[in-house]
């Protein structure tokens, strides 16, 4: 079996060059969907019979919640790939995912709290869903802290990957917390299996926001990973060429690579 594609996937330079053209399109698509979804959800989706207009927070709260959990899985998988195959790029992806996931988890906690006040009459309750989400934010913080706790990059990556893998146990707990314990949080309205309990007029803008948020997450992860690649590969000749080439053109914002052939194996 030809494993060339897999080795290429592990090449930071290949990733940097490949993603250069994607950024602008991902930016247009993500921000386009997020703006359409927000206008639709805020102004055109019908009012909820029980929660009135406060339910419109759903259009940002739920998509961000999906991403914050998916981001954790992605981070753990990247860590596992790094540990097993000793590849550099997955570790860079893992490190880049942590601050994005932490920001998204903070958004979920904050918007949930703002939504909870008019709906439940409280900003915070130590119930299953909210507490497990708080634990998720601590896990992300732990990974960010571990990345900065060691002088050796290799040790920091391995320690972070192990914590990321151990922490995956929290994701099913978050997901099932509304079924396992008595909680203020409502059960899932969007279901992969079975019928969703949300009206299509409310579902379509929500779906737009979910897709937009996934595209945005892809964009943010690529941007953070590209910066991390430059940071870690600063001694590589191609990064030096890039710095001199871009600086001489005065265009520091784009950061395209000078065109040339990729080395066969950059994943040592």
């Amino acid at each position: 079996m030809n494993w060339q594609w897999f080795h290429r996937l592990g090449s930071p330079r290949w990733f940097y060059e490949k993603t250069d053209a994607w950024i602008i399109w991902l930016m247009i698509l993500a921000w386009g969907l997020l703006l359409i979804g927000a206008v639709w959800g805020l102004g055109f989706a019908p009012m909820d019979a029980k929660q009135k207009d406060s339910y419109r927070i759903l259009y940002i709260h739920a998509p961000v919640a999906f991403i914050s959990m998916a981001c954790y899985y992605l981070m753990a998988i990247a860590g596992a790939v790094g540990l097993i195959w000793k590849m550099k790029l997955p570790y860079m992806v893992m490190k880049s995912a942590a601050p994005i996931g932490f920001a998204f988890t903070l958004i979920v906690l904050a918007t949930g709290s703002i939504w909870g006040r008019p709906t439940w009459g409280t900003w915070w309750e130590w119930d299953g869903r909210m507490t497990s989400y708080l634990v998720l934010s601590f896990l992300y913080l732990g990974i960010i802290a571990l990345q900065n706790a060691f002088q050796s990059r290799d040790t920091a990556d391995k320690a972070s990957a192990i914590l990321a893998l151990v922490g995956t146990v929290n994701i099913p707990i978050i997901y099932k917390s509304v079924d396992w314990w008595y909680t203020l949080h409502q059960p899932a309205t969007l279901k992969l299996i079975g019928k969703s309990t949300i009206h299509p007029s409310m579902l379509y803008p929500l779906f737009t926001m979910i897709v937009g948020m996934y595209v945005f997450f892809t964009l943010a992860l690529i941007l953070y990973t590209r910066t991390e690649i430059l940071r870690r590969e600063s001694k590589a000749q191609w990064v030096k060429d890039l710095a001199l080439d871009i600086s001489s053109k005065g265009d520091l914002s784009k950061g395209s690579l000078p065109k040339g052939n990729l080395p066969k194996e950059e994943n040592a």
Binding site: L34, L42, R117
Partner: peptide, 10 residues
Amino acid sequence: NVWASYILVY
């Protein structure tokens, strides 16, 4: 509540 949430997120 609604606008504060959207401003925070965006």
